[in-house]
Design a protein around this nucleic acid. Structure first.
Lengths: 135, 135
DNA sequence: CTATATGTTATATTCATAGTATAACAGATA
DNA sequence: TATCTGTTATACTATGAATATAACATATAG
């Protein structure tokens, strides 16, 4: 079981799921072309509704992280993944901005913040334990 | 006019406002002890409801960025600001995580990401133009 | 061919939150 | 005595999240 949901979080469930699938792709835990569980199966495993899973899948399909075939079901993007184009970077800056501002106002210096980001990046790229391949 | 709201954004108005006030404190545009407009005045200026402004003020008061006196009205925290304690850092990591993961999966390397963060940090600390003191 | 599993679509309902609209209150100020 | 302050209360609308069923078309397995 790789996906962990916090039902009490203010972050929507479908968003948590989508985020963790992206992280799975980023870490290599989910390989290109790999099949994902059907919406019904994953929904049952996670104890949530079919439509909530579908919403996450659809969003990731829309962004190009997943492909959905009538035949193969849902698979991780086997071709080229989306790039860090200007549109993404603009969104990234927009989302990072308030976080950087609060870190600054709380007294974190530039190095502390960038090092925290570095550590985070590396921990995703090379996760502590790639134990189970299952979700 | 320093605060700019996007009424079409998925980010709540009161959150946009709170974020920009924090950024104002971070940049020094809002000095410690400085008086902020009353909830009614700012609401009228921004064309939003009094309660929406109040919600932002209350949140920032709760976190320790503002003080609210019956007498002086609303002022920027004149004493020591909140620190980057473990609680904040945990929240920071939690919020940064999905952003770092998507940046990684889109092919940004560690340096690109940290440099983007650096640039952002510096642009907040030393904003392009501190023209108007007004909100 | 038949049964099953797939994604997909359509409704409907419940619930929480955001935002607005008014109104009123208590305390401080001019 | 007015006026401005934050504060509280109530009500309403709109939106989105999440769930619950149901049904459909297609592809696969037996």
């Amino acid at each position: 079981m790789f996906v962990e949901l916090d039902l009490q979080s203010e972050v929507p469930i479908y968003e948590q799921l989508a985020d963790q699938l992206v992280e799975g792709i980023a870490s290599g835990m989910l390989a290109p072309g790999q099949a994902l569980p059907s919406v019904r199966t994953l929904a049952a495993d996670l104890g949530i509704n079919l439509h909530t899973v579908n919403k996450a899948y659809q969003a990731l399909k829309q962004e190009g992280f997943l492909e959905i075939h009538r035949k193969k079901g849902v698979i991780v993007q086997p071709g080229p993944l989306p790039t860090a184009d200007e549109t993404f970077k603009a969104r990234l800056r927009r989302d990072l901005r308030p976080l950087a501002a609060e870190a600054l106002v709380r007294g974190m210096n530039e190095q502390e913040l960038t090092e925290l980001m570095q550590t985070l990046y590396r921990s995703i790229q090379n996760p502590p334990s790639e134990g189970g391949t299952s979700l």
